[in-house]
Design a protein around this nucleic acid. Structure first.
Lengths: 347, 347
DNA sequence: ACGCACTCCGTAAACGTTTACGACTGTAGG
DNA sequence: CCTACAGTCGTAAACGTTTACGGAGTGCGT
């Protein structure tokens, strides 16, 4: 089966009518529609997407932009896959496909995005890893491309996004540690311009000050959010003259490296140093001692992202009425053994 | 910037020449080409992909078909993400995009694939989770769509695939356990028609028979390859009248549930029961006792898959000459504590 | 002066759809 | 009998490219 033309000839019907019949347009006879659908089914005809896209100016494809250095992906754990899966559960209901657009690490994300948009290969975009000022957001807003961001940003005033509740987590973690008697609490953050680290630290600082604990910049450890970063973080912690009694990790995967480095120096996590982690943490349960960790459902996050995006696309808006334009995604504390001790008992 | 027409008008050049200039065709003047490229850069022109696809009959998109039940994805760990990342590193070099095609769990994968192919939305396919007889393979072969499979199959005689070395792993694991004195060795396998389980069990059976140990069907535990499946596997193991001293898991994630169930009955893995796992196993290191496990690099696997696919596409063949058409992907044993005891010491 | 090869460029057809428009029925109402 | 209208359907243009074809100009050898 080649195209709609062959199908039309086979039925002795004009090509226009066939198209209308297939697309459920009203002005076509019941009986003809039945014949057309039957023939299409029989001959296995499906409309060529390129032709359709060209004519209608829409591709039925949603782009998901991710940064794709080997390192990033390996550290990313199943974060993206989990989200992707939720996204697809929403999209497939509308026959939308998901295109992964990995921005090479040596290219400017903004330029990459512009190129992909200019190619007219997607109808809408999902961007992640938003920067504190992120030109992609201005660009998409101005170009009127529907999009949703996984992460806040200072760029543009009002765009749809979902972001993790960094403030809530930092706040909750600090409160919890203080309640356990801790006064010197370290925290890790990425050194990049990603907005995420900034919010995290800010909230940490405010929580401390609420308890009249002075913010000590030397307790903010700037390392990569990876296993190796955790190792290095532990290393730097151990070098501090006045060692903290607790540490908050911005990414639970870091705990692995951190534990290792600590043990090498005979420092026992959960006894000599309290540790609290963050983000989806299936691994946290298997560490010894088990990691206290804030977690969430990546799948649900993906579903929410997908819904928010479609609510911003004229063609699908009606399916998702009245959704919020911004969501702070809550996380739930899973208490483990890594911070389950009273610091008062320490020397 | 709308289209090539506007660009041509802006330059006072015919649209045909502009196209040739942009696409590096030979019959265009050096100076004109320079001007065209400069103007395109300045005005941010990028060719519309739908128009191009329609004309050339190729989309520059590779489809990756996955099954997308919520359960599957959550259990899949970062398996697909790891592979995806390797794939993209190959594809992005050729400006190819990767489209994820999640087959709804309530639809026949074969029908789904046919529809996607008929839409002409991809130039080539990667399929995974191959069944023992898999109509998708016959279909793709007959339709002459370039593809590569992650997994063997009995369908079609000669198609490109990469598969994990199930035989090698089962063989190696059995040999290792026998050397440690074990005689009753259980094994888990999925109950589905996936080819993978079949090969795994066959190799296990042959390894046993090589050592004159009779194959006991009751030692083949049919459970899902998930954490819950591991729990259930342990449950069934404990019910056996003559309890095995070792178990081989077809998926390392199962170890988590298995450990839990065993401990509930006071059976200590690594002391009362030897356990060996399989597949990429970042988590295995964090179990207590640490899991002996066969592992591999998902990224490298993705790269190999991508290369093999391109080697089968006329337009890219020249870049990847002389590759093999089939690869049995080797895995490496990472010894842990979960099988590090001599069964002779047991009662 | 002529033919020929070569370089460069313009013209127009083609890819497969969707859809605006108008044409053709038959029917009902005046 | 004329008009209006609803229900169907065919015609053809449009979407943005690429590319086969041929034409114009130039240089060169005969």
């Amino acid at each position: 089966m080649k195209g709609i033309r062959q199908l039309a000839e086979h039925l002795n019907i004009s090509i226009g009518t066939v198209s209308r019949a297939l697309n459920g347009k009203p002005d076509v006879n019941q009986e003809t529609r039945r014949r057309v659908l039957a023939a299409a089914e029989e001959l296995g005809y499906v409309a060529n997407q390129s032709g359709r896209s060209l004519r209608q100016g829409e591709t039925k494809v949603i782009g998901l932009m991710i940064e794709s250095s080997k390192e990033t992906v390996e550290n990313a754990d199943n974060f993206f896959l989990g989200v992707t899966s939720g996204l697809q559960s929403v999209f497939s209901r509308h026959q939308l496909d998901l295109l992964m657009l990995p921005c090479p690490s040596d290219e400017d994300p903004h330029e990459y995005l512009k190129r992909m948009v200019a190619r007219r290969i997607v109808d809408a975009m999902i961007i992640s890893d938003t920067q504190r000022v992120d030109r992609r957001i201005d660009f998409l807003s101005r170009a009127k491309i529907p999009f949703v961001a996984l992460g806040r940003s200072l760029s543009a005033s009002n765009f749809p996004w979902i972001d993790l509740d960094f403030e809530g987590v930092a706040d909750h973690a600090v409160e919890r540690l203080i309640a356990l008697g801790h006064r010197r609490i370290a925290i890790t953050a990425p050194s990049s311009e990603a907005n995420l680290g900034y919010l995290f630290i800010e909230s940490y600082r405010r929580a401390l000050e609420r308890h009249d604990i002075a913010f000590d910049p030397s307790l903010v450890i700037r390392v990569r959010s990876s296993e190796q970063g955790g190792y290095q973080a532990a290393h730097e912690l151990l070098l501090l003259e006045e060692r903290p009694t607790a540490v908050i990790l911005i990414y639970e995967l870091m705990a692995i490296g951190l534990y290792r480095r600590l043990m090498e120096s005979g420092v026992m996590p959960g006894r000599d140093l309290a540790v609290i982690g963050f983000r989806d943490a299936p691994r946290a349960r298997f560490l010894q001692p088990s990691l206290s960790c804030f977690r969430m459902s990546l799948y649900d996050l993906g579903v929410a992202l997908g819904r928010m995006l479609l609510a911003n696309m004229p063609a699908y808006r009606d399916f998702y009425p009245g959704g919020e334009r911004n969501i702070i995604w809550p996380l739930e504390l899973m208490p483990g053994e890594s911070d389950a001790f009273d610091v008062g008992a320490m020397v």
